[in-house]
Design a protein around this nucleic acid. Structure first.
Length: 272
DNA sequence: ACGAGCGCCTGTCGGC
DNA sequence: TGCCGACAGGCGCTCG
């Protein structure tokens, strides 16, 4: 489901609390439960449930699309993939059918990693950086510079869309924000990355940061039945707008398949 | 070093 | 109403 803005919104709500539930910062785990075995990559179920009991959440962070629940001695990492979400509820509620990992806290609330499609993954490890080893830079951090990005494009010979979806190049972009960024930069998703000049690269660099910032400002995008709570979907220029007129030139938005993914573009504004 | 294809899963929606 | 295919915010794998 979620990309960087959605994951970041979830992180902030867990950390700061909402009208519906308090912050889960500094909550102590009474018991950890694994409801679907494949969701937890490591360690095994017994080690997880034994080790997490009694640990307190000391910080909630994010790296790319990963949520980081920093605890006393280890960190719980969660990647929501396509349909994952995090909910906080009273532990008197019946356990929902999509709960995959549950942390019951001492104050009778619980946090659940819910995931209908079971693509999501979790890790409970002492050294989270090992899991993040292959991730590229955070696109909104200062270490992600125009020069770095230009270098990332020109030292590879790749189609723009798969390059931007590649988490080892930039961490956090997914199908929505890639399509929106390419439209904003007026770049065709099948453009070859090594055939670009600095002007072109800067346009895309700015577009990536712009759409991510707007996504964050709108608290992410809510589509279908999954993630709720953001309204960036109302501001999409191309994503899932096949056939609708381009907001710049009126040409119908086109849908093609690139990297097995739906790809939306204005064939007039975005040319190779 | 690339992209294409496929597998992993379940739910929703539109067409017939 | 029921069935069936298309589609869904991701990513790891194999194969050319």
């Amino acid at each position: 489901m979620p990309e960087l803005p959605e994951v970041e919104t979830i992180r902030q709500r867990l950390r700061n609390g909402t009208a519906e539930h308090p912050s889960i910062l500094r909550m102590t785990v009474r018991s950890g439960l694994l409801m679907w075995n494949r969701t937890l990559v490591e360690p095994d179920q017994d080690a997880f449930e034994n080790e997490i009991a009694g640990q307190t959440i000391t910080e909630i962070g994010r790296r790319g699309k990963y949520l980081i629940f920093q605890m006393d001695r280890s960190s719980l990492l969660i990647h929501l993939r396509m349909s994952g979400d995090i909910i906080v509820e009273s532990d008197s509620e019946p356990t929902g059918p999509y709960h995959r990992v549950v942390l019951e806290f001492e104050n009778r609330t619980r946090m659940a990693f819910t995931d209908p499609r079971k693509f999501g993954r979790a890790w409970f490890v002492p050294d989270p950086e090992r899991i993040f080893a292959k991730l590229g830079p955070e696109p909104l951090d200062s270490e992600f510079t125009e020069e770095h990005f230009f270098h990332s494009l020109t030292t590879r010979k790749r189609l723009m869309k798969p390059l931007l979806l590649d988490q080892s190049v930039i961490a956090g972009l997914g199908n929505i924000y890639v399509d929106e960024a390419l439209f904003l930069a007026r770049i065709h998703p099948l453009q070859l990355s090594n055939r670009v000049d600095e002007d072109f690269s800067r346009r895309l660099y700015d577009a990536i940061r712009c759409v991510l910032q707007e996504g964050l400002y709108r608290n992410g995008a809510s589509i279908d039945w999954v993630y709720r709570g953001g309204d960036f979907q109302n501001y999409f220029k191309v994503y899932r707008r096949t056939g609708e007129p381009c907001s710049i030139c009126g040409t119908p938005i086109q849908r093609i398949i690139v990297s097995q993914r739906s790809t939306h573009l204005c064939p007039n504004c975005q040319r190779i």
